[in-house]
Amino acid sequence: MSEALAQPANVPVRDDAPRPLGSVVTERPLVRWLLIAVALTFLGLFLVLPLVTVFAQALAKGWQAYLAAFSEPDAQSAIRLTLLVAAIAVPFNLVFGVAASWAIAKFEFRGKNLLVTLIDLPFSVSPVVSGLIYVLVFGSRGLFGPFLLEHDIQIIFALPGIVLATIFVTFPFVARQLIPLMQEQGTAEEEAALTLGASGWHAFRTVTLPNIRWGLLYSVLLCNARAMGEFGAVSVVSGHIRGLTNTLPLHVEILYNEYNFVAAFAVASLLAGLALVTLAIKSVLEWRYADDIAAGARRH
């Protein structure tokens, strides 16, 4: 600022003259405006508009038709199934995700890199393939097919298959989030707890877990959103039996294919609502606990 003040008044300030402090990386107003406009247009076209469309279509024939879509027994069973699958898959991935990241972040062992790669696998495999794997293993012509048939155990085209496929697809969420976080936190606090006489479990409960609680909540949130919204893998193993093995996303597809647009969008609006709530909580967590969620975030 002082430089600007020191400038004689009669010297015209050129456009490319040094700007006040802190503006070196700032673009000119026109460029700035243009960039913002491009970004907003893109966001509007590809994110906001579809979201609005979902709700607009769902309510196209009024509230009555909207609510009717949920009172249908097939819709209710789809909601129940989706909640049930998430209720099994998410806690499962929570426990295994924490265990895996704890082992990977705090201990040295052979095959560690292989384990990390395996945990990442579901992210790089197409969900359809993830579903097919289970059909090939547990299907009637699969590896264990004859055995399962003999003992009257049904996995494919039933709840266990859907749960397995969901677990597979959502497995990386918790571990991926926690491994870098726990690695960054190191083992000194745990060692301190051990020297003070704490057992391994006590140290884990009183030191490790509190240190990762917000990161854990964050990853569980994302894991849950994906578990409820998963389509591809579940579609392969579900068999699309109405009222039995249809989850919400599958139910939306069936309704849509039957040209029942209002009902399809009404059910879809439920998933969209879930996404919005997830997004809101996620933003609050990121805003409030940025330090504790991800590794490498700002530190005080």
């Binding site: 606090e189 060692e191 301190a192 707890a193 020297t195 006489g197 009183t206």
Partner: peptide, 19 residues
């Protein structure tokens, strides 16, 4: 085991329990 050794250990970077 470390828990039973009855040692007090002070780390270079304190290792206090943050929470």
């Amino acid at each position: 085991p470390v828990q039973k050794r009855s040692v007090g250990f002070v780390f270079q970077h304190y290792a206090l329990f943050k929470h």
